[in-house]
Amino acid sequence: MPREAELSLNEREFILKALHENVRLDGRAFDDFRKLDLTFGDEPGFTDVKLGKTRVIARVSAEVMAPLPDRKFDGIFNIVTEFSPMASPAFEVGRQTDAEVILSRILEKAIRRSSALDTESLCIIAGSKCFQIRADVHVVDHDGGLIDASCIAVVAALQHFRRPDVLVEGEKVTVLSTREREPIPLAMLHHPLCVTISYYDSGAIMLVDADLAEEQVREGEIIVTMNKNGEVCQMVKYGGTPVDALALLDCTTLALKKVQAMTKYIHQKLNEDAKKRDIGGLMAELTAENER
């Protein structure tokens, strides 16, 4: 496969010089995200996220399975990320790149290990049956900011997804179809989102949502995952030049602002979609969801 085209020395210098003069090539402010566009598909759990030219599609699906033997009371939740040559010719099928490993690890920590999804609510019969929730992340177009976009896509897809209701009679489990019982949303405890901050000049210049060219010239990145309440789920800095500890604190305040804005946007989009689906206003009556 062809390697990812590297920026020429002139391009690098140009981007850096511009950053020193407080200008980004696309005219954004340093703490601005690119235009975020979130659309939902017809089936529940399908989200299409466009962040500038980056495009990520997430699909959530559910299946009934036996739980893991050491986790009898928990359902199973997996996030699957795989890059395809569609996103960039540099990605090869069947061979993981570093970026792919980092993306899946970050998503795993941000969403699964921060227990955003209440896996206990997925248990049907302890030790024998539970739901397996699977989130497939398809990176379709790559122009930087994959972590942020993928995280938005998965979190939005999980909120959009409806799993079928089940009827338990002793040991017998019946999965009710959408015609019999309205499917129910997943129990989510909080909605974590990632904000990637690229830094230059040992943290003197901090950029939010760098595009691919800016990512290639950065000294390092700090990924902050937090929810709208300001609870930090993870803070990651893989290598790069050292950054002042106080600068890291600034990152969290910056990230909180961004996360709150994005959560609001996702919520608004979900509401719009729910309104579209709620034909005749029957949803409130049909819902089979238990009050928490």
Partner: peptide, 28 residues
């Protein structure tokens, strides 16, 4: 899509497919 040489989104009768073509490029 913008990173590949050619791409198309096609949907018909409930099937939605996204396709991308890169080439001709150097083969391994």
């Amino acid at each position: 899509l913008h990173r590949v040489d050619g791409s198309a989104a096609y949907s018909h009768a409930g099937y939605n497919v996204l396709g991308a073509v890169t080439g001709p490029v150097e083969a391994q």
